[in-house]
């Protein structure tokens, strides 16, 4: 690269020109590559939308989303059972996960010594790295029987493959994301804030609750939304424990059927029934749009939080 340094003047100039031309070419190539990322994103959305056009032409979007009749053979593709399944599992998962995650994050950010924190962070990362089928397998082996026992004890006749089982697995799966983002957000609150409040004679918990949590609420909300989006799109683990009956779930112990599970379960037969593939691709498109919007909102909130804290 630097071969021309000590050589004759003319050659250095000549090669300087070549080198700066190379530099400009590379810069342009990189800029084009960067633009293509954005193009690809649009392409994914457009591709799925195009595939879902056939069904949107025959039935209105409102009817597709709000009808609960799912009879592909009769060309009735009401997505309501699946939408409600996704919403129910996800919301329940967040209800289970958020308090535990928030408390854990507060402990890690406010109380734990840095040695403990440095030891736990990789463990949390590990939890995030476990493949979703392994979570699913564990759900089948542990959570489903546990839910069956609980359901029986409460007087429900249930197989255990249920909304509650799905939500529990989802809650566990999103915990690492919520914990690690919350911990990061809490630690971004300046020490002066804590000193100020502590010096007024507050306990550590009061400082955390009234000052640290208050000033980082936007970041925490973002973490929760990110967890929510991740849960809404999670497929395999939920699919394995949730029961997959296309009906609006009636109780915690009833089976549910979230959108991702619908897509994953039916890829095999969708080519043989008219409009089936289009309906599934529309489901994928809906999922994409919802999850992407949630992600976008959360990321923007996190960016704003980071800017405010500086």
């Amino acid at each position: 690269m630097g071969r021309a340094w000590g050589e004759m003047g003319t050659r250095v100039i000549h090669s300087l020109r070549a080198r700066s031309r190379q530099d400009r070419v590379v810069a342009w190539v990189l800029r084009i590559a960067l633009a293509s990322v954005n193009v690809l994103t649009v392409l994914i959305a457009v591709g799925l939308l195009l595939k879902s056009m056939p069904i949107l032409r025959t039935q209105s979007l409102g009817k597709l989303l709000l009808s609960s009749t799912w009879k592909p053979l009769q060309s009735q593709f009401g997505l309501l059972p699946f939408l409600s399944g996704t919403i129910a599992t996800t919301v329940l998962a967040m209800l289970l996960a958020v308090p535990v995650c928030l408390l854990s994050a507060v402990y890690l950010a406010e109380y734990a010594r840095s040695r403990v924190r440095n030891w736990i962070a990789p463990v949390i990362d590990l939890l995030a790295g476990i493949p979703s089928v392994v979570y699913g397998l564990w759900g089948v082996l542990v959570i489903v029987p546990a839910v069956r026992v609980l359901g029986k004890a409460l007087g429900y006749s249930t197989t255990g493959y249920s909304l509650l089982a799905g939500a529990t697995i989802l809650g566990i799966m999103v915990a690492p994301i919520i914990i690690s983002i919350c911990t990061e957000v809490l630690r971004a609150v300046p020490t002066e804030a804590r000193e100020t409040a502590l010096a007024l004679g507050l306990t550590r918990w009061e400082v955390t609750r009234h000052v640290v949590l208050c000033s980082s609420r936007r970041g925490i909300l973002a973490a929760v939304v990110l967890g929510f989006a991740r849960a809404a799109g999670e497929t395999m683990a939920v699919l394995m424990v949730v029961g997959n009956v296309p009906r609006v779930p009636s109780s915690l112990f009833a089976p549910a059927y979230p959108l991702p599970a619908l897509i994953a379960n039916n890829y095999g037969e969708m080519m043989s029934i008219p409009m089936y593939d289009s309906a599934l691709m529309m489901a994928a498109f809906v999922l994409l749009v919802v999850v992407a919007l949630f992600n976008l909102a959360a990321r923007l909130a996190l960016l704003r939080f980071a800017r405010d804290e500086q």
Binding site: L30, T235, V291, F294
Partner: peptide
Amino acid sequence: YSKRRTAGVTRLVLDVLWGVPSIVYGAF
């Protein structure tokens, strides 16, 4: 190589893409 704004937007896009469920990529 890129303006702050372009880089910022692309980072955001990448973060959003990272959040897109893999079943959607599978479908695509």
